[in-house]
Design a protein around this nucleic acid. Structure first.
Lengths: 193, 193
DNA sequence: GCTCCGATGTATCGCACCGATACATCCCGA
DNA sequence: TCGGGATGTATCGGTGCGATACATCGGAGC
């Protein structure tokens, strides 16, 4: 209950609108193009989210120049308010479990451009721990298993483990890159250790 | 609304209980050991599911031999009824979207041992189509994108695409294996094509 | 010129399921 | 002996997906 736990959509919407004002339909297309590989945003959650953000004063409707519009189809373009930008900065600073869980990590990562280097690093490491935790859990459970597993179950396990291990390796590379970049930027202890 | 759409838990529980009677806590551990890499089953859904299955007469409480029990801690062991077994067979025969979506595919796959060869093949192919569809969608959306993307977004895209492509390759191998096995079993057209 | 269809667009409802939490008992080590 | 961790059952709140409904626009085909 602390502060915006689990509300992935809020960040996704705020982050997208930070680039450029958008309306619902377009927003969904953007998000699904950006993150379609990981999750599927739907209207059933988008529109309620937009309404909530509107009520909170974090976004507002943008009136297009009336002269340019002729055949004006009903279309509601939203843009960030000052409070919205503040809130976005806030969300981008949070490096907690809500940032590295499966559903939310992708969204946070997608807006890393606007995230401080230190926060980026903590999120990447948090995600890595999360995955390694999961690997451990499944591996020990597997080791404790008495009965012989059928080939399908084994193959599923193998594939699952391999996928997660692969993501861990990916995270390792990203973390190394981040470290290298931040070392270049502030080479105080460049030769240290 | 047709017939048990989306109810992944039902299959997971019925399938697990088919191997051996279990109680809630153990059931959850089993499922998380089996599928923990893909999803996380929680009590908040398990117990309501068990209750529902009980009401439907698909499972029943199993009384352990009272003599053996001494310090009997309250523990409710469930086992399949005849109707439950029937229902399970039914679920295992269904090869629809509800079988190859992200959340459900793993569960269906985990019980492939009890699934007919033909159904297995259709599920694997269905999943593959689903993933290829997604690849297409993201690729064309990406191609249509005018603005230049930052390196984080690009890396996310790259990693997402690679993961899905990898799963498609995995499915290809599985499908080939299935085909080979089924050809061996009924070598009517062994030399055909 | 007319019509149909698919893309664009806003919106709601049902409901599956996760995370957190509460609470009780058992067992084991300090 | 006492406290913490594993075992065990159970509920509640809330997020967000899928299906659906319903409008309008532009273009393809005839």
């Amino acid at each position: 209950m602390a502060s915006g736990q689990g509300r992935v959509l809020e960040l996704a919407v705020l982050g997208s609108l930070h680039e450029t004002p958008l309306h619902g339909y377009e927003l969904r297309k953007r998000l699904n193009a950006l993150l379609g590989m990981f999750r599927a945003f739907s209207y059933g959650s988008l529109y309620p989210c937009l309404r909530s953000l509107l009520e909170q004063g974090l976004i507002m409707e943008e009136q297009p120049a009336p002269t340019t519009i002729v055949g004006g189809r009903s279309k509601i373009v939203y843009k960030l308010t000052a409070e919205g930008k503040e809130r976005l900065q806030d969300l981008l600073t949070q490096a907690g479990p809500s940032a590295w869980e499966d559903e939310s990590f992708g969204v946070h990562f997608a807006f890393f451009r606007h995230t401080e280097a230190e926060v980026r690093l903590r999120i990447l490491e948090g995600r890595r721990s999360r995955l390694e935790e999961r690997l451990d859990a499944v591996r020990t459970a597997l080791a404790r298993t008495r009965e012989r597993l059928d080939s399908y179950t084994l193959e599923l396990q193998r594939h699952g483990l391999e996928s997660v291990e692969r993501e861990v390796r990916w995270l390792n590379e990203l973390i190394a890159t981040e470290r290298r970049a931040s070392a270049e930027e502030s080479p105080d202890r460049s030769t240290d250790e």
